[in-house]
Every structure is written in structure tokens, then in C-alpha cells.
Write a protein that binds this DNA or RNA. Structure first.
Lengths: 159, 159
DNA sequence: TATTCACTGGGCAATCTGCCCAGCAGTACG
DNA sequence: CGTACTGCTGGGCAGATTGCCCAGTGAATA
């Protein structure tokens, strides 16, 4: 998938003002409404834009503690462990990483004390050999995509 | 911030069908439009819902490789390192973690080879003492929030 | 040269939004 | 016990937006 400059501007605009609407976008970008609409459709069917789900802040939900757990999985137990972790609501994300049978797991909890409960639930499963946890303190760069989109649009310029 | 059952249903509905609109939501939830609207406003001003930005897939943008880098920062250089990393588009997220001067950094790259370039750029900064990188292979549980929202709404039930 | 593709600029009906109102129930409080 | 207050309902209204259609144009391509 290649992204051109207009695509980039659409995504950035959308990221900055999500409620903006196709018509207003076309005005801002100086192109026809149909063009913006077609671009958006294409970006979505190409999978560049996955969706527009609400971005929920776990802290505001009462889960201000974030942690990462590195799990070491017993050979062949990967699938079971994934299924297990998928049932834990406090597991926000699960990634398998390099290193034999390693997984990285993003967790939230109601408090540091509550984190113990969450970790117990996470690692209280047979296939997990070892777990080490790191607590997140600050989030200087919250998950972002705009700079990368701009970069990708730049790169495509010379294409 | 406490979330009640209706709030939970609104968020989940919105997460499942982001384009749905307030009117349709009120129909599905069996409440008045004004109620949904008021709840949404409250959720947003409370910070529970941060926004509705597009969810962009870095892989579809041409960055299929994801990695995590653990950085060890020299005492007192934290702010500089943050500023430095914020300028790197491939840095999608930056977290400070327990452990003196440790940061966790989410990266993407165009390829495994390109990852080297990204890492060089990331760690090519004075305040960074040491870095270790883990490449992500699979993502069995993509970043999700619905189970947690349901959990939070459940918990509030008895309140 | 003929064809295809993306974009433009316009129009249309249907829908939704933002905003307003009065009424009503439950609750906290004087 | 009465009185405010809050949140929800159900309705209405004008204005804006959406989804969808069309013909024309320019550029790249076969």
C-alpha cells in the first residue's frame, strides 16, 4: 500500500479533528467532496484506516496503573496461553516476541495492590514458566501515528 | 470516574460500530436520544473517551515490523531523551518504567533491515546508555478496550 | 488514437445533528 | 413533609450533512 500526499493530509486532518466530516474536509483540503470520499473508502478498504473506534482512557475508567509483563511460555503451550490471556479483561494487548516462547503483555490495574491480583490471574496458568513485570510510570509519548503518516506521505512524494 | 451500565453499553456499541451516530444508538439502547447525547458528552468531558481518531495500521502504511526497545537513560538526561525520541516518526509510543532511568519504546520499521536504521537513530543520542530491542512477531490480542469497559460497567452495577 | 482512471462540480432526497422545550420520577436536604 | 435538583423522556425545528447519482475533463496508458 502506498500513500500519497493527499491521503496523508486526510489522515492527519482526521486525527486532529475526528468529528470533522467529509464535506468540511473537502473544503479544508481544497478538493471535491467525492474525492475525499473516494480516498477515505480506499484507505479503509486497504486497511490503512482500520476504523474510528473511541479511544478510551483506562485511567479514567478506574485503571490508572499500566504495566508490561514479559512471559516465558512452555514449548507448545502458546495457543493455550493466548486463549487464557484473552479472557482477562485487564490484558489490553498481547504480543509474541523474539526469544523462544516469549510474550509481551500490556496490563492495567486499579492500583499497585490490584496489580498483584491481575498478575496472579495472568500467570496463574500452567503454560507460563516465568513472568517479569515492569510498571509504567509516565507516558511521555502517547501512542501516536501522525508523524509516521506524514513520513509515509513524504516518502511517496518522489514516487 | 465511575461508569455505569449504560455508559458501558454506549462505549461498546461505539467500539463495535464506530460510524453509528447518536440517533441509531438511542434506538438500539432503548433510551432517548438526549440521554445518549448527554452521556457521550459526559464521557468525553470526563476523559473516559479521549476521541475518535482514525486507527491507522502501520503495516498498511509500509511499516510491517514492530519492535520494543528498552532504553537505559543517564541520570538527568530524561527530558532530553524524550525530546529526541519525540522527533523520530517511527517511535509510536514512549513510556518511562520502573527501574532507574528506564524507558520502553515502541517502534516500527519498513523491514528488519530498516529496523537497524531506526534503532541507530533512536539510540544515537548522548543520554542513552544502553538499549535492548525485542522484535514483535505476532499480535494475538490487538490493543483492545471492550472487555475492560464491560468489566468496569459490571463493577459499577452493585454501586 | 482509444480507453481507462481519478477528479470536478453539481444536484437530489433522506437523514442526522444541535438545540430547544415541558413533564416526570427519584433523591438529597432544609 | 415539602422543595430543589438532577437525569431521563419524548417531541419539535431549522440547518447541515450524507449517500448517491450524473456528465465533463484531463492525464496516463494500452
Amino acid at each position: 500500500m502506498v500513500i500519497d500526499h493527499l491521503d496523508g493530509r486526510i489522515i492527519v486532518l482526521l486525527a486532529r479533528e475526528p468529528r470533522i466530516g467529509v464535506l468540511e474536509m473537502s473544503r479544508r483540503l481544497g478538493v471535491a467532496r467525492g474525492t475525499v470520499q473516494a480516498r477515505l473508502d480506499r484507505l479503509q478498504s486497504n486497511g490503512v484506516i482500520r476504523g474510528f473506534g473511541p479511544q478510551v482512557d483506562p485511567a479514567a475508567l478506574g485503571y490508572p496503573v499500566t504495566a508490561f509483563a514479559t512471559l516465558q511460555i512452555r514449548q507448545g503451550q502458546g495457543a493455550d496461553v493466548r486463549a487464557h490471556l484473552a479472557t482477562v479483561p485487564e490484558v489490553l494487548e498481547l504480543l509474541t516476541t523474539t526469544g523462544s516462547g516469549d510474550m509481551l503483555c500490556r496490563l492495567v490495574a486499579r492500583s499497585n495492590a490490584d496489580l498483584q491480583r491481575v498478575i496472579d490471574r495472568v500467570v496463574g496458568f500452567d503454560g507460563i514458566v516465568r513472568a517479569s513485570t515492569t510498571i509504567v510510570m509516565e507516558n511521555p509519548v502517547p501512542l501516536r501515528i501522525i508523524p509516521l503518516v506524514e513520513q509515509a506521505a513524504q516518502d511517496a512524494k518522489g514516487t
